[in-house]
Design a protein around this nucleic acid. Structure first.
Length: 199
DNA sequence: CTTTCGATGATCT
DNA sequence: GATCATCGAAAGG
């Protein structure tokens, strides 16, 4: 049996994909872990790189769904997204945190830190732990070096407002595993309640 | 525990 | 020249 073919349908809204990706295991060259935090970025979204239309940087966001969109944040940190919806739509999901499960020692070496809770708990840390850089921009998520493995257990989902942005900060487009120690930041108790109400 | 601030470079105005 | 979907160290309570 093979779990390497991605059953995630990226041709859906970034909110739907961001929610569905929680609990999947993301590996790059066999190294990675469980996706515990994502954020959706949509067109007509002031915080999205795609808001003002296609440019050289955001070109992958306007390409086919299921491909990587990689950008350099604050001149220092490589951040990894997956494109959603449909070509020309400008939608993507930012991978914000993983629970490390595969290749812990490699990630410790890349990150220069020992604590598992700090290896991939933030978009910049994910990029460093997975050794993401510009060369991954535009690559398909369902092909090597990427690999997506389905969740094995039930996920307790949480929803909250996006963080670290200066515009459209009220939209509840951040998704995660409730109470995971590997989040970039805890979700509020109100967010836990709101997520329960969704079910 | 919290807040503040510097690093660093691509992108866009 | 300003902005930025971040991080880590330092300082303060």
């Amino acid at each position: 049996m093979s779990l390497t073919r991605s059953p995630v349908n990226f041709a859906q809204s970034p909110q739907t994909v961001a929610r569905q990706l929680i609990g999947w295991t993301l590996l790059v060259d066999g190294i990675g872990g469980v996706i515990v935090e994502t954020e959706a970025y949509d067109m007509d979204d002031e915080a999205s790189h795609s808001f003002k239309g296609p440019t050289l940087r955001n070109a992958p966001m306007f390409g086919p769904p299921g491909r990587a969109y990689v950008y350099l944040s604050y001149g220092l940190h490589w951040c990894l997204n997956v494109v959603c919806q449909e070509a020309g739509h400008g939608a993507a999901v930012l991978l914000r945190a993983l629970e490390p499960t595969h290749g812990l020692e490699a990630m410790r070496a890349r990150r220069g830190c020992h604590r598992a809770e700090l290896l991939a708990s933030g978009p910049g840390r994910v990029g460093q732990a997975l050794a993401i850089d510009r060369s991954f921009n535009g690559l398909a998520f369902d092909e090597p070096p990427f690999e997506l493995l389905a969740p094995r257990d039930e996920i307790e989902l949480v929803v909250g407002v996006r963080i670290g942005i200066t515009k459209a900060g009220h939209l509840p487009w951040r998704f995660g595993i409730a109470n995971s120690p590997f989040l970039s930041k805890r979700f509020s108790e109100a967010a836990h309640g709101a997520a329960r109400d969704l079910v």
